[in-house]
Design a protein around this nucleic acid. Structure first.
Lengths: 237, 237, 237, 237
DNA sequence: CATGAATGAGCGTTCATTCAT
DNA sequence: TATGAATGAACGCTCATTCAT
């Protein structure tokens, strides 16, 4: 709760601040909504955290609900287009595409303050169905579609096994989502040694999921019926 | 909102109900807390949903907060012991153990109403730190420890690659958690064809993660640092 | 809050108790109403204190308000008739009558549990105007009238100075009322040495007020209009 | 219940009111608490009586209990210091000091709205032990000590008989307290002719108690050991 | 008669929202 | 434009009262 912002180099403080107000309020609101939930966050807290009074907040957002929706809209799906273009243009192995996707996800979302949005949506989806729909169609669906296409490409090129691309997309996404929901919920209660390093986790995830999806000897004696001694005969002729 | 319960064979209706009340209230509270969140759920709704009046709820739980805590405690970590015993006694391939774990998780938790608890904890952990701690130490930690040991066993027996067991545990858990959080948040907004069949998803997950962890040809020429020529020398000498 | 009354010698406990119930409830109610006030006393407390359940209380008193009124009526003005007869028959000095009155007041009321009634009436008079009226006409008025007549007798017989009998009655009563209101309000907070012995206080009060009302040398050269000729023989040289 | 205060000359109405609000609320609260008791007074009534809404009250007092405590603290023992200084400096007869004390008590407390505080404390002492302690030590004790010293002075200077100063202090105070408790409890129910004029009562009280305490012929044939031969010379024929 | 589970009107308190300054 | 005093609807909780057992 910063009381007096130093504001590095402040020319014409008032007017400069005025333009930044909505953004500052959204930033403060995101942090508080993520931390305490929508209902438990008082608008006065948001205003104070942004360094303005309660009344001023209502000058920019007509209601708490609209503020919340603005927070979601502001932080949802901004950098998706890039990823999509990239995926379309990529020509290398699909495995690399998956790795690239996971990596970009972290730098563009998972590692930014916007990541809290995930927890927020999970918590409030039922109370703001239209927001949930918006998030679903604007963020989740495109991301899943992108992944689905990547997986389909992998399958089509014979790099991946024949898997349901929708399910595979879920599997690729799950640890990412899990990483941020954890971070904003139980992580503060965990003994530090239990908290995995995000980058290490993502690297292993990419490794495991790519291995798991790729064709090749499974090394799994259980489900895949394979002749015990079966040095991966390198399928895919 | 059932008004008059038929009550198959009712000896001393009043007292019979008395004993059932706490469980009925907890059930109703779990559903509503999961659906709308703690703050947005009115105690009167919980009471009505359990077929009693507001005042009656307070006969059994001294406050809304205590009701919430009881909901969590009641639904948290009940069947864990079984899974642990099973894991300790298992003698087959570790891959089977992992599959078994995922399968059991679904039948004992993910597929039951208690699964909503996961979303609840994620949403409210910051507002109920002691509950979060309780859940972390009673449910999350044991589950993770169990998985960690399973992975360690796999590594020790040469079935799994040399991976960080803590990270691997997270990877195994992530899609499970993701499955239920999704189910209680965005799923109701999804077009049905996007909703994956839970069992199919879990089956694929088990497949992929087991493959991904197991030693053997990865079919991934990119990141996994592997001596090109390294035909799994059949571990466990 | 006695839980299980031993009840010295209990023949046919149930039926014996049944008849005593109202009295026991009134006794318990008086104590609690006096201690905590009408509003802050819960009927369940009264019932528990009398060793019965909440429902039973309503078998004997139709409402909390009626219970309160019964408490007042039960304890108000019982022994007044005696004092009145006594006063009428008395033939000695009026000073003795006053002393006798004060003394009887203590043994018949001030020293009994009923004394708490005074505090109760003071506290609740505005909320129960009809009760206040009842108490005023049944207890206060007769007592004051009696005192007024006593004072008038003293004046008529030349024992007392010419004072307004109504005012004098108030002066005689004031320390009595004060004694009991204090006892049930601030006394529990007082350091013990500040708590005067009731009997000593009453003795001094009788002394002082009788002296103050009686004709004779005042020893006060200031205000009391006294016939110049009556030089107090200056005691205690 | 004034709706719109005229407010003679209003510069910056809003802020002017802001400063006056606590006092207005305290005044309204005192009156209502005195009239109906703490529990039976609803905060909304207090607010309405002060001309504001329920919510506004909580802007100035964090709870009903704190409002009550503020009422007591605000009205308790304000002019005590003056009386004490006066007593210390007084050089005339102690009898005059007592008269002066009684007189000042009326003008500074008994005749002001704060007098209701006495009834309030009597009624609620048991429910607010810390307040009772505060009142006891801040108001009652100093007042009693002052009176005790006055009486001791009178005894030391041979003006008063040898009486226990603590008891005497109680006797001096009793009619004062009685006057105000009566005023706020049963007085409204009394037929007007029964209501004594406060000033007349206090004058007679001063007269009687001073006479009663002073040395000199008691004119009381009973307790005070007096020279047998002192037949009340029948004054005022 | 006695019990105590159940009720629901009522109150204290919070907080999003308004608006005079 | 910015403020913060004021509002009042809404919610958590209590407790007098009822009634099935």
């Amino acid at each position: 709760m910063r009381e007096s912002r130093p504001d590095t180099a402040a020319p014409a403080k008032r007017s400069r601040r005025k333009e930044a107000r909505p953004a500052e309020l959204l930033e403060a609101a995101l942090a508080l909504f993520v931390e305490k939930g929508y209902a438990a966050t008082r608008v006065e807290e948001v205003a104070a955290s942004a360094g303005v009074s309660k009344g001023t907040l209502f000058l920019y957002f007509p209601s708490k609900e609209e503020l919340f929706k603005a927070v979601v809209r502001e932080n949802a799906g901004r950098k998706l287009a890039d990823a999509q273009r990239e995926a379309a243009e990529h020509t290398g192995p699909t495995q690399d595409l998956v790795r690239e996707y996971i990596c970009r996800w972290w730098t563009e979302y998972g590692g930014t303050p916007a990541a809290g949005l995930t927890k927020l949506i999970i918590s409030e989806a039922a109370n703001f169905p239209d927001l949930a729909l918006y998030y679903q169609s604007e963020v989740v669906q495109p991301a899943h579609d992108l992944l689905k296409h990547i997986v389909q490409r992998g399958v089509a090129r014979g790099e991946f096994r024949e898997v349901d691309p929708v399910l595979a997309a879920h599997l690729i996404v799950a640890p990412l989502v899990q990483l941020v929901t954890w971070r904003y919920s139980l992580a503060p209660c965990c003994p530090p040694e239990q908290l995995p390093d995000p980058l290490a986790l993502l690297r292993l995830h990419a490794d495991v999921v790519v291995r798991g999806l790729s064709v090749g000897a499974p090394g799994d004696g259980a489900a895949a019926p394979q002749p015990a001694a079966a040095p991966p005969a390198q399928p895919k002729p």
